[in-house]
Amino acid sequence: MFASERREHLVRLAAELFAEKGYQATTVRNIADEAGILSGSLYHHFDSKESIVDEILSAFFDELTATNQAALERGGDPRTILAALVSNCFGTLVPHRAAIMVMQNDWNYLRQFDRFDYLTRSEEKAERMWMGQISKGQEIGLFRDDIDARLTYRMIRDTIWVAVRWFRPGGRLDAQGLADHYIKVLFDGIAVH
């Protein structure tokens, strides 16, 4: 196995342990044991456990930011763009499951370290993207003007990310099917009109 392949393998193993046990509860020894190597051998690939989780989270945020930016650049009305943002988020549930679990479980712990300042910056950027579309939709009469854009964004965000806890690939709906259902409920509600 090449060094880069070994490194990727270690990141995947660590990601699953972080998702299962939590970042703080997972030790370097746990990761090494899972990989079948000595703890010290892990330091041949990473300088710290923080480096591993940093790689996991930065890859997630980089990809999500890029796909969301692409949705904005494709344009369309606010409903179309919000639907694309929702689909992008649900599309990360499988490939970035561990990163989302770490975000949910260890966000407040990691935010205290300068190394993870990008977490807050990424979240603020996402909030501006979403709120901008919600506000624009309100201005043009597409969305109700009696809802708070920030609160609405946070409710949408939280209901999407919590799905990582119960969504299982291979179930009745794949990630896009789940996104489509969510979009239907988001825009059309559950009441018969």
Rank of each mutant, 00 (worst) to 15 (best):
D106R: 06
I100M: 12
R111Y: 04
S135E: 09
D114S: 09
L110M: 09
Y109W: 10
Q112R: 09
F113R: 09
S135F: 01
M131W: 01
E127C: 10
G132S: 05
A99T: 04
Q112Y: 02
G132W: 01
S122V: 04
I134K: 01
D117E: 08
M103R: 15
W107Q: 10
W130F: 13
I134F: 00
M103G: 14
E124F: 04
L110F: 06
L119K: 09
R128A: 13
W130P: 00
E123L: 14
L119V: 08
F113Q: 10
A98S: 13
Y109K: 09
V102K: 12
Y118Q: 08
E127I: 05
R97T: 08
Q133W: 01
F113V: 06
T120L: 12
M103P: 04
A98L: 06
F116D: 00
R97K: 14
F113T: 01
M103Y: 15
E127K: 11
Q133I: 00
Q133L: 04
D117F: 03
T120M: 11
K125W: 03
D114G: 09
I100P: 07
I100R: 13
R121A: 15
Y109V: 11
V102N: 11
D117S: 12
D114V: 02
S135T: 02
G132C: 01
R121W: 08
R121N: 11
M101T: 07
M129L: 11
D114A: 12
Y118W: 03
F116L: 06
D106Y: 08
R115C: 00
M101Q: 14
Q104S: 11
D114E: 11
K125S: 03
V102L: 11
A126Q: 08
F116C: 00
F116I: 03
I134G: 05
N105I: 09
F116P: 00
I100Y: 03
K125M: 06
Q112A: 09
Y118A: 07
Y118P: 04
W107A: 10
N105R: 15
M131Y: 02
N105A: 15
S135W: 00
M101W: 08
T120C: 06
R111K: 12
D117V: 03
R97M: 07
D114L: 06
W107I: 07
R97W: 09
A126E: 07
Q133S: 06
Q104N: 14
K125P: 00
M129S: 03
R97L: 06
L110Y: 03
R97H: 15
M131K: 07
D106I: 10
T120D: 12
Q133R: 01
W130T: 00
E123Q: 13
W107G: 08
Q112L: 07
M129V: 02
M103W: 13
A126V: 04
T120V: 14
N108Y: 09
A126M: 10
D106N: 12
E123A: 14
M101L: 14
Q133E: 09
Q104R: 15
E124L: 12
W130L: 02
A98E: 10
A98K: 04
N105D: 15
E127A: 14
Q133T: 04
Q112V: 09
S122F: 04
I134W: 01
Y109H: 14
N108E: 14
N105L: 15
K125L: 05
L119S: 07
Q104T: 13
A98C: 06
